[in-house]
Simulated assay, not measured.
Amino acid sequence: MMTEWLNSLKEGNGITVLLLLVILFSIFQGWNRGASRSAGKLVHFVGDALLRLIALAISVPFTLWLSPKAGDWLTKLGSSLPDRELKLWEQMYYTAVRSIADFPLLRFALLFIIGYGLVGFMLRLLAAMTLGSRISLFGPGRDSSASLLSRLAGAGIGGVIGAARSIILIAILFIWVSLNPDNGFSRYVEASPVYKQGAQAVIEPLSGTIVRERLPVFTQSVQEELNGIIQRKYEVIDHQIPEGIEQTASHIVEGAETDEEKARRLYDWVGTRIAYDHEKVRLYEEHRIWKEQTPEDTYNTRLGVCIDYARLYAMMARSQDLDVRVVTGRGYNGQGGYGPHAWNEVYLSEEGRWVPLDPTWAQSGDWFNPPRFNETHIKEQVF
Results as ranks from 00 to 15, higher is better:
193 P>L: 10
332 Y>N: 13
99 S>D: 03
7 N>I: 07
259 D>I: 00
305 V>A: 01
177 V>G: 00
366 D>M: 03
17 V>G: 02
185 F>V: 15
355 V>C: 07
16 T>P: 05
203 I>G: 00
66 L>V: 11
276 Y>G: 05
284 Y>C: 04
290 W>F: 13
256 A>I: 01
94 Y>D: 00
358 D>P: 07
340 P>R: 12
164 A>D: 04
302 R>S: 12
190 E>M: 12
361 W>L: 13
135 I>C: 03
126 L>S: 13
95 T>N: 01
212 R>Y: 03
87 K>G: 15
179 L>R: 05
304 G>E: 00
136 S>W: 08
194 V>A: 11
71 G>C: 04
11 E>S: 12
368 F>A: 02
49 A>P: 00
12 G>S: 09
363 Q>A: 12
337 G>K: 09
185 F>D: 06
6 L>E: 10
343 W>E: 01
11 E>G: 10
278 H>G: 07
5 W>F: 12
26 S>G: 07
104 P>Y: 05
324 V>Y: 02
139 G>N: 06
84 R>Y: 04
315 M>A: 07
305 V>S: 02
376 T>S: 10
252 I>C: 07
224 E>T: 12
161 I>E: 01
5 W>Q: 03
107 R>Y: 04
72 D>L: 12
267 Y>R: 05
304 G>K: 01
28 F>I: 10
133 S>K: 09
156 G>A: 15
94 Y>I: 00
148 L>C: 11
147 S>K: 10
316 M>E: 02
321 D>K: 13
146 A>N: 08
345 E>D: 13
97 V>R: 02
26 S>Q: 12
82 P>A: 06
207 S>C: 12
24 L>D: 05
63 T>L: 05
103 F>Y: 15
9 L>S: 05
129 M>T: 15
173 L>Q: 03
258 T>E: 09
249 A>R: 03
303 L>N: 08
87 K>W: 08
86 L>W: 02
160 V>D: 00
183 N>D: 15
324 V>Q: 01
249 A>E: 04
78 G>I: 00
35 A>L: 10
382 V>H: 02
295 P>Q: 07
36 S>A: 13
355 V>G: 00
279 E>S: 11
1 M>T: 14
313 Y>C: 04
137 L>K: 13
173 L>V: 02
289 I>R: 11
236 V>F: 00
102 D>L: 11
240 Q>M: 10
290 W>E: 11
132 G>I: 13
336 G>Q: 11
248 T>W: 03
144 S>Y: 13
206 L>P: 02
197 Q>G: 01
104 P>N: 09
131 L>T: 11
223 Q>Y: 13
